[in-house]
Simulated scan of single mutants.
Amino acid sequence: MTKAILTSTGANRIKTELEHIKSFHVERCARRVEEERKNGSTRSIRDALDEQEFFQRRIVYLENLLSSAKILEGRYE
């Protein structure tokens, strides 16, 4: 697997996005799925589950990116 090369600023932006998704979108999606299940609309439930899956996959992608990236410090900023 090819390592990504990130500046420390870029890595921080990714960390910020990751924390935002975890703290906001995951909770919101879970509530939306629960509400749609109460309402019973199959299409709305599927849409809510698709959105939840998108953010779950995004979390995995960003975590993998950060864990395997080479972070450049200093003059590259």
Score class of each variant (00 low, 15 high):
Lys22Phe: 01
Gly40Cys: 15
Leu18Pro: 01
Arg32Asp: 07
Leu65Asn: 03
Arg13Ser: 08
Val60Leu: 11
Lys38His: 09
Leu18Ser: 04
Gly10Tyr: 03
Tyr76His: 12
Ile45Phe: 11
Arg28Lys: 12
Ser8His: 12
Ala69Trp: 04
Asp50Leu: 05
Ser41Gly: 11
Thr7Ala: 05
Thr9Phe: 01
Leu65Arg: 04
Leu72Phe: 02
Thr16Ser: 09
Asn64Arg: 12
Lys70Thr: 13
Arg37Glu: 14
Glu36His: 08
Ala4Gly: 07
Thr9Val: 02
Val60Met: 09
Gly40Asn: 06
Glu63Arg: 14
Ser68His: 14
Ala4Ile: 09
Phe24Trp: 06
Thr16Gln: 10
Asn64Ala: 12
Lys22Arg: 03
Leu66Trp: 06
Glu17Cys: 06
Ala4Ser: 12
Glu19Phe: 02
Ile59Gly: 01
Ser67Phe: 09
Glu51Gln: 15
Ile5Ala: 04
Glu73Arg: 09
Ser23Gly: 06
Leu65Gly: 06
Cys29Ile: 00
Glu36Gly: 05
Leu18Trp: 02
Ser68Gln: 15
Asn39Lys: 11
Leu62Gly: 05
Arg28His: 07
Ile71Cys: 04
Glu34Trp: 06
Ala69Leu: 09
Val60Pro: 02
Asn64Ser: 13
Thr9Lys: 12
Leu65Met: 12
His20Pro: 00
Thr16Pro: 00
Ile5Asn: 07
Ser41His: 08
Tyr61Gln: 11
Ile71Ser: 07
Glu51Thr: 10
Glu34Asp: 14
Gln56Ala: 11
His20Met: 07
Asn39Arg: 10
Lys15Asp: 08
Val26Gln: 14
Leu6Glu: 10
Thr42Cys: 13
Ser44Met: 12
Tyr76Leu: 06
Arg57Gly: 15
Gln52Val: 00
Glu73Ala: 03
Leu62Asn: 08
Lys15Glu: 13
Glu19Ala: 13
Arg32Met: 09
Gly10Phe: 01
Arg57Ile: 04
Gly74Ser: 12
Ser41Phe: 13
Asp50His: 14
Lys70Asp: 15
Gly40Trp: 09
Glu53Trp: 08
Leu49Arg: 12
Ser41Leu: 14
Ser41Glu: 07
Ile59Val: 11
His20Cys: 03
Glu73Cys: 00
Lys15Arg: 15
Ile21Gln: 00
Glu51Asp: 15
Glu63Asp: 08
Lys70Ala: 05
Glu35Thr: 08
His20Trp: 08
Gly40Phe: 14
Ile5Glu: 10
His20Gly: 05
Lys22His: 00
Asp50Lys: 13
Gln56Met: 10
Tyr61Leu: 14
Gln52Arg: 15
Arg75Cys: 00
Ile71Leu: 05
Cys29Phe: 06
Lys3Asn: 08
Cys29Lys: 06
Gln52Pro: 07
Arg58Asn: 07
Gly10Val: 02
Gly10Ala: 10
Gly40Pro: 15
Leu62Gln: 04
His25Ser: 03
Val33Lys: 10
Thr42Ala: 15
Leu6Tyr: 08
Ile21Trp: 01
Thr9Gln: 11
Ala30Gln: 14
Arg13Gly: 05
